[in-house]
């Protein structure tokens, strides 16, 4: 079963009010479901379909198009490590390998304690402060090994 929390329930009419067509609320509701549960569960897609009068299959076809939706549970912190050109030119590959070995996982995996998930990511629009990574909603820029140590060690 999936249910939006009471606080999120309250936000649904506010979100719907932004648009003349309720289907526009699909991405916002998927995002809200993911923020609540950590991923987009099949039941969440069914529930969102009910709210917006869309079939679960249609909801899934849209959700699967976008890379930010996780279809499976992830770690508490999702590390998205940019490897695109400006970061690559500034040593991102080495720092990504360093981060993976520090966490003792491969890129794409989650640590055994479910704390960190590490992904390779395409450009996140922080190119003049490369190399960079995004952890949940926060951008961390101008990275070095020391800085990565500090950031990862500071997270509970």
């Amino acid at each position: 079963m999936f249910e939006f929390s009471p606080a999120n329930q309250k936000r649904i009419p506010e979100i719907l009010a932004k648009y003349p067509d309720t289907q526009s609320a699909l991405l916002p509701l998927l995002t809200m479901a993911q923020r609540q549960e950590g991923y987009v569960a099949p039941q969440a897609m069914v529930e969102i379909g009910k709210i917006l009068k869309l079939s679960p299959g249609y909801v899934q076809s849209v959700a699967s198009f976008y890379t930010m939706y996780h279809m499976h549970p992830t770690g508490k912190y999702i590390i998205l490590f940019c490897i695109n050109i400006s970061c690559q030119l500034n040593g991102a590959d080495e720092l990504l390998a360093y981060t993976a070995s520090k966490l003792n996982i491969k890129v794409g995996e989650t640590t055994a304690d479910k704390k960190f998930t590490l992904h390779r990511e395409e450009c996140l629009a922080a190119c003049s402060n490369a190399p960079m990574m995004r952890i949940n909603d926060t951008y961390h820029e101008d990275l070095s090994k020391e800085k990565i140590d500090k950031i990862l060690d500071s997270l509970d």
């Binding site: 916002p28 198009f65 976008y66």
Partner: peptide
């Protein structure tokens, strides 16, 4: 109003952006 996408470079193309804003695949 603000509206957030969900990860797709193609949504910077204007008509894909419109599809995405309408709650569709960003094609």
């Amino acid at each position: 109003h603000t509206h957030l996408g969900a990860g797709a470079y193609i949504c910077g193309e204007e008509s894909a952006l419109l599809n995405s804003l309408e709650g569709r695949r960003g094609e």
